[in-house]
Design a protein around this nucleic acid. Structure first.
Length: 269
DNA sequence: AACCCACGCAACCGCCGTCAC
DNA sequence: CGTGACGGCGGTTGCGTGGGT
C-alpha cells in the first residue's frame, strides 16, 4: 500500500521500556483513555511510536493481565482452539481471559509446539506426524483430531500432570478462580460441541462482546493495577497472577505504593 | 570462575482490513 | 472509486537469563 511509517523513526525511542515510560503510559491511559494511539505518545510525553505504546499496554501493562505460565486447562484450550482456528492468536487469546495474543503465541512456539511434536502430533495440522493429513484443504475438518488431542492419554500422563502441577502451581493458588472457572466452562462448552459448525457458531456468537471485553480499556479502568516487583519493574518476570494472594497479599505494600504513584482513585479504590 | 548455548519473552516490523474523506 | 490514516494482527528478531560444561 506504500504507507508512510506510523511515526517519525528518527524521533522515537526503541527497545525495552523503562519504569518511567511505563508510568507515563499508565498514568495517561488511566486518566484519558487511549483515544488515538498515534497521538498518545505526544500527549503522554513519550518518545515512542503509537504502535509501541499500544503493544506495551495490551501485552504488558493492562491491569487485567494474568501473568505466569498457562495452566493445563488454558493450554488444552489453546490447543483445541488452534486446531480449529490456526494461528489466529488474537481470536484464541480472546477466549482466555487475561491472556494476550503475544503471550499465547510465544507459549505456543516455545512450549506447546514441542509438546505436540513429542506426542507425535503435527502442531500445524494437528494430525499424527506419521500420517498424511486427510484433508489439507480444510484445516477445520480436524474436529476428531482436536478430540484426539483432548483425549490424548499422554497429555494426562503422570509425567505431564507433574509438569502441569508445577506450571499450574501459581494458577491453582490464584484467587482468580473466576477466570479459571470461566476457562473450565469454556472447556466444558467446547467438549459438548460435537462438530465444527457448532464450534464456530459458538466461537463467533457474541464475538465482539466476548472477544474484546478484555481489550477495551473501559472495562479495566479501576479493575486493578500492574504490580511492580522488588525492582519496581512492572510485571517483570512476574511469577504470580496479578490477584493471587502471593502478589496481592505479599506485596500489598508495594502495590499501595504503586497506587499512590498513580493515584489510588485512578484504580477505583 | 568463565564460557557457551539454548530458551523464553518483550518488542519490532510489515502487511492487511476498515473507515473517513 | 481511490487514497491515506489508523488500528490490529501475525511473524520474526534480539536480548537477558539460566543451565551445562
Amino acid at each position: 500500500m506504500g504507507r508512510q511509517p506510523c511515526c517519525d523513526k528518527l524521533e522515537v525511542k526503541k527497545g525495552p521500556w523503562t519504569t518511567e515510560e511505563d508510568k507515563k503510559l499508565i498514568n495517561f491511559i488511566l486518566t484519558n483513555g487511549h483515544c488515538c494511539w498515534r497521538a498518545l505518545p505526544k500527549l503522554a510525553g513519550l518518545r515512542r511510536c503509537g504502535k509501541s505504546c499500544r503493544l506495551r499496554w495490551t501485552n504488558y501493562l493492562r491491569p487485567d493481565l494474568k501473568r505466569g505460565l498457562l495452566s493445563h486447562d488454558e493450554e488444552q484450550l489453546v490447543i483445541d482452539l488452534h486446531a480449529h482456528l490456526g494461528n489466529k492468536w488474537s481470536k484464541i487469546a480472546s477466549r482466555l481471559p487475561g491472556r494476550t495474543d503475544n503471550e499465547i503465541k510465544n507459549h505456543w512456539n516455545t512450549h506447546i509446539k514441542k509438546k505436540l511434536v513429542k506426542m507425535g502430533i503435527d502442531p500445524v495440522t494437528h494430525q499424527p506426524l506419521n500420517q498424511e493429513p486427510n484433508n489439507t484443504d480444510n484445516p477445520n475438518s480436524s474436529s476428531s483430531t482436536s478430540d484426539n488431542i483432548l483425549m490424548e492419554p499422554k497429555s494426562r500422563s503422570p509425567k505431564n500432570v507433574q509438569t502441569n502441577s508445577t506450571t499450574t502451581e501459581d494458577e491453582s493458588s490464584s484467587t482468580a478462580t473466576g477466570q479459571n472457572s470461566s476457562i473450565n466452562n469454556e472447556n466444558q462448552l467446547l467438549s459438548n460441541i460435537t462438530n465444527d459448525e457448532e464450534l464456530f457458531s459458538y466461537l463467533w456468537s457474541d464475538d465482539t462482546a466476548k472477544a474484546d471485553a478484555s481489550r477495551s480499556c473501559s472495562n479495566y479502568y479501576g479493575v486493578g493495577g500492574t504490580l511492580y516487583n522488588e525492582d519496581n519493574i512492572p510485571g517483570a518476570r512476574a511469577d504470580f497472577p496479578i490477584w493471587s494472594p502471593e502478589r496481592v497479599g505479599g506485596k500489598d505494600l508495594m502495590f499501595l505504593d504503586y497506587c499512590q504513584d498513580f493515584g489510588v482513585h485512578d484504580f477505583g479504590f
